[in-house]
């Protein structure tokens, strides 16, 4: 797997598992889980600094930006203005031009507002951002995002934090055929087999948070996800056998009594 690097907008990534940093018990657990996951891209959110409790530690004291690619997101933004504002703030906070763009449609489903997403992506790309859009499993929207300059697309497997796994593998496959940029399946995986499946279908990477952070043992689950993504990728590259309705014997008939 030496030459199997993921390249997005000229940046090389070793791991095809990307992880979020939310919902962990504490920063130590976050750090250990990320280490176990083998991920080199970690997502973070942008929020107000706590000005009353100055003792509060900073996440980036535990996740070294020299070791990991920090990918700020616009989580919690429900309109174009907010998403653009948060992306600009993330860049001002000084990590890079990368942004995982989220424009959410409603609080119950957290599905992307794809019209708003396209609009926000256009604005940010003009401003020099490298926009990685969190989008629906919609091939048409994925194509539009690529057409306006997104160097990768991040379709969901299922609603954020739902753990339902890949609800629409056929749409994901159509997206993979339709666009020629890396596809990162983002959100909705529940366990290792979901991640393996996404990679077997031909996804270039998988991004998850809740499936690891919400597991009873997040560090063990992070390791499981690491294996799953590797296994799925290898299986995809190896090429699976076709599905057949009837048996095909593995042992030769010749030489039988």
């Amino acid at each position: 797997m030496m030459d199997d690097r993921l390249i997005i907008a000229g940046r090389e990534f070793k791991s095809r598992l990307w992880v979020g940093t939310g919902k962990y018990k504490d920063f130590i657990e976050t750090q250990k889980a990320i280490e176990a996951s083998g991920a080199d891209v970690v997502t973070v959110a942008v929020r107000r600094v706590n000005i009353t409790d100055r003792s509060k530690e900073n996440l980036l004291d535990y996740i070294d930006p020299k070791k990991y690619t920090i990918l700020p997101n616009t989580a919690g933004c429900y309109n174009v203005e907010d998403a653009v504002r948060y992306a600009r703030l993330a860049r001002a906070a000084g990590v890079s031009d990368l942004v995982k763009l989220e424009v959410l449609g409603d609080e119950k489903t957290l599905f992307p507002d794809t019209a708003g997403l396209l609009e926000a992506a256009k604005i940010l790309i003009t401003e020099g951002f490298i926009v990685l859009p969190y989008t629906n499993d919609d091939p048409i929207v994925a194509k539009k995002l690529v057409d306006i300059g997104c160097p990768a697309v991040m379709p969901l497997a299922a609603p954020i934090g739902s753990g339902l796994g890949i609800r629409n593998p056929y749409n994901l496959k159509i997206i993979m055929e339709t666009v020629k940029v890396p596809i990162i399946v983002d959100a909705g995986v529940g366990t290792a087999s979901d991640a393996a499946l996404a990679m077997e279908y031909g996804a270039d990477a998988v991004l998850m948070n809740t499936a690891i952070a919400g597991a009873q043992d997040p560090i063990a689950m992070a390791e499981a996800m690491n294996y799953a993504v590797h296994a799925g990728r290898l299986a995809f590259k190896a090429g699976r056998i076709p599905r057949k309705l009837y048996a095909t014997a593995s042992s030769p008939i010749e030489g039988m009594l």
Partner: peptide, 15 residues
């Protein structure tokens, strides 16, 4: 004045 920084986050926190 708004002072912001990075915190743990994946996607939107789940309700």
């Amino acid at each position: 004045v708004e002072i912001l920084s990075f915190i743990g986050g994946g996607t939107e926190q789940v309700h």
